[in-house]
Structure formats: C-alpha cells, structure tokens
Design a protein around this nucleic acid. Structure first.
Lengths: 237, 237
DNA sequence: CAGTGGTCTAGACCACGTT
DNA sequence: ACGTGGTCTAGACCACTGG
C-alpha cells in the first residue's frame, strides 16, 4: 500500500513519461493539484519533492514547477539498484554466470569490511556478459547471519529480489566508490579485455533499514562498457 | 538568512562533525528536538530530512534517528561542487593553469550542447595539477549571455564563486556522466600521463534556479587520480 | 494586484518497536 | 501502554513573479 503522496508522485511521473504532461511546460500549481488529487498542500508538496529529487521538475518561486527533460535511458543508473534492474533498462542481451559461491567463516578482512564479529559470510563471484562479451566481474561478500541459504540459482538470478521479496528485508541505502585500477592476470582471463588493461572499480557497501551492513561488493567493468549518470542538486551543507 | 530548519540541520551536522553527538547513537526524538529548538514537528522533520539525504542519519520507526558513520573525506565529492570547493577537502597542493580563454559566436555544436539560439559562448581550458603533476584537463563552455565578462583571473580562481557571489546567480542542479575514453595525442602532451592512455571523462551540464543551462563541462582525469564517492538511497520510483 | 512556491505552526491518527 | 517516526490535514504569513 503506497501512501497518498507516493501515489500522487507516481501518477505525475507516469503522466510526464507518457508525455501527457509535456516537457518544458509548467505543472498545475500546488493549489490546483490540491483540488485535483483532493489532498492537502503538504501532501502535494511531498509528492512534488519526489519529482524534484529525481530531476523531473524544477520549482520556481512565483512561477511554478517546470517539467525538465529527463534523460530516461541514463537515469536509472543512479541510486541503489541491482544489476538485474539495470539490465532491464538496457537493450542488449545480458547473461550472468556464477563462477564461485562459497560459505566461509569470518576472517580478519571480513571483520573489517562487514563489521562482523562471528558467523559466516558468502563469497560470490559472477561474470556479466553483454551481447556475448564478458565485460563485468562482480565479487560479493554477504553477511550470512542476515542473508542465509543463498543458492547458485539465486545468485544467477537476482540477489536483491531474494533479499527483498523472499527474505522480506528492506534495502535502504548504499555507499559507492568509483576508481580505476589495473586488471590482474586472472581478471584478464575471466573477461574479454581486448587491448585494455584497466578496469573501472565500483566498491559498494549496502545497508538495510536498520542501518546494518549486509553486503560488500567489488564490481569491475571493462572501461568502454562503463557509464554512470548522476543527477545532483547544489546543497548548502 | 538561513531558514529555521536549515539552521537546525546545520547545528545538528556541526554537532555530529564535532562528535558532540556520537556516531552509532540516536538523536533526541523529534518531540525532544521540538522543545530543544522551539520549533514545530514539521520544521524538525525538514531539518532531519537534510541529514537523511546526506547520509548523516538513518531513521527507524519506533526507535529513532541513528547517527551514521559519515566518511568525511569521501563525502563532499558528490553533489554539485566546484573544483575549488573540492580542492579544499584534499590535502595536497592544487594549481590551476588557464591555457585557453576565448569568446566565440554560437556554432552548430554549442547550439546543441547549450541550447543557445544566438550570442556568444566562452570556451575555457584549464589544467589542474596536484603536487606538481598535471592530472586533470577541464574544458568549459559557458553561455556568455548569462555569464558575461569572464577574465583569466576569474578562470584561474573560481568560476562558481564569480557566478554565485559576483553575478548573484543561483546554481541549482547538474547532470553528470562518467565514462572512460582514450587520451588524444594533445591530451597526452598537456597532462603527465606516464604509462596511461585512458582518461576518465566527466561531462556535466549545470543549470541555474530557473532551469536555464549555462555551462557544459568536459573534465578529463588521469585514471589513478580519479575517485568519486556516492551516497544513494533506494527509491521506489 | 493576484497567484505562485517557501516556511512555519498545531493538531490528529497510524504502524511500529520496546517495555 | 508508551514513545517513536510516517502520514495527513488546515491555516497562516512571507517573498517572488507576472500582468
């Protein structure tokens, strides 16, 4: 059950995506939206905040909310999204191959990365292929106390789907770091590197709603297949 | 003049940064904060929203607002920030050298990139050096109708400072795209590339409050000197 | 001047977690 | 049972934009 302001924002986003509301035009004013959706001003403003945060509109005092030209292809790459969710937004055939799935007792490194005291962690390595070319190598470390019973089928399908829908856990936020590193010999063998010898390295730490860290991922991308798009507002922190 | 909720959020962030409020502890409840700051619940919630967006806290129903361990070094890299603002957060000597500053009439490409119909645009090329090594090449295109009278002194100092403080314009949001590209021969000569032949390419489009596009920038970084950190919340868009 | 979004208040009910 | 954050309402005043 979505809340009222979420339903309103969803409705507005749908209308913008379907171009029922045109880019470069102004949305109905907050007053009009109150009547249209039978909601209070605050609820309308919460709905508009979602559009604002996601780059759909830009508000102007005294004028209104201008609909921006969202680059739909580029957009979903931002935020916390699983590989499978991303893949849907791309028009190529995507294949995942699991090359390692092991359950290990905590060691010094995982104590540090996952803040685990005891128990086991899963290590999963997966190769992602686009149109037959092996271009991404993902290495996942998961706290097995939080995410138990991972099978190769789950790993090949979607970890996020398993975590959110099967286990009922809520993924909340992630920290990511992007750097460029030299490929190791092993990586050169696992991926179709052609003439490249660098890899774009995305390290991410993913957290649940209660702020517990459950996943640490190193995702390495062949440079020519890497693209990340960001929408950022200037903040006065 | 900052608004009340901005002052409250600023005060809370200061206290977290100074560790007067400890990481992994809970903030006072919204009810208590209302009394502490003599504000309504809504105002408190707006203040907490800023902390939430920036990864300072994580809220839990029935429990409270948990203070997260913000990676202070990494953080400021996200968002819309000028090079000079970023440089302050780094502990190395940073030098900017302007190698081109020209005013040109609009041509086909800039019509497309900056959506300009008429008038002139500035082209600025700058080399950024860290500790004596030339590692970044920035190429800026600015709408001269919006940002006039750019001098070499301004370009060498801070464009954003000139735009916001001298011209009084409000920078609002930006779209950025990260890719990796091959370095051209010219780029290899302008930068200290060592053995590298790839560059991390960050294209950004920067907009003012009225959603007018005024700047298009291509920033190319030597791979080993590139690092981008992102904090993202999972959204149900 | 009227209309817009920005801020702030006071009150209400709910779902949730802890006790 | 109680306190927490999540949602929603109704009303108020302000600063800004436009005619």
């Amino acid at each position: 059950m979505l809340s009222k302001y979420q339903r309103i924002s969803q409705d507005l986003i749908d209308k913008i995506d379907k171009q029922e509301i045109k880019v470069h035009s102004y949305l109905p004013s907050e007053n009009e939206l109150m009547k249209l959706y039978n909601a209070s001003r605050d609820t309308i403003r919460k709905a508009l905040d979602i559009l604002l945060k996601n780059g759909y509109i830009q508000k102007n005092k005294g004028k209104g909310s201008l609909v921006l030209d969202v680059d739909k292809v580029a957009f979903p790459v931002s935020g916390v999204m699983s590989f499978k969710e991303l893949a849907k937004t791309i028009n190529s055939e995507v294949v995942t191959k699991v090359i390692e799935l092991s359950l290990n007792p905590v060691d010094v490194q995982m104590k540090k990365e996952l803040y685990m005291d005891s128990g086991n962690y899963y290590k999963i390595r997966r190769i992602r292929s686009f149109d037959g070319e092996r271009v991404i190598l993902d290495t996942d470390y998961l706290n097995a106390n939080i995410v138990p019973n991972i099978t190769e089928t789950i790993a090949a399908d979607s970890l996020y789907n398993y975590i959110e829908n099967e286990l009922g856990l809520k993924i909340s936020f992630a920290r990511k770091e992007f750097t460029v590193v030299k490929a190791t010999e092993e990586e050169k063998n696992l991926l179709d590197m052609h003439e490249y010898d660098l890899l774009v390295c995305v390290k991410s730490y993913t957290y649940l709603e209660d702020a517990s860290l459950f996943q640490y991922t190193i995702s390495k991308h062949r440079p020519d297949k890497f693209r990340f798009v960001d929408f950022a507002r200037r903040t006065q922190l």
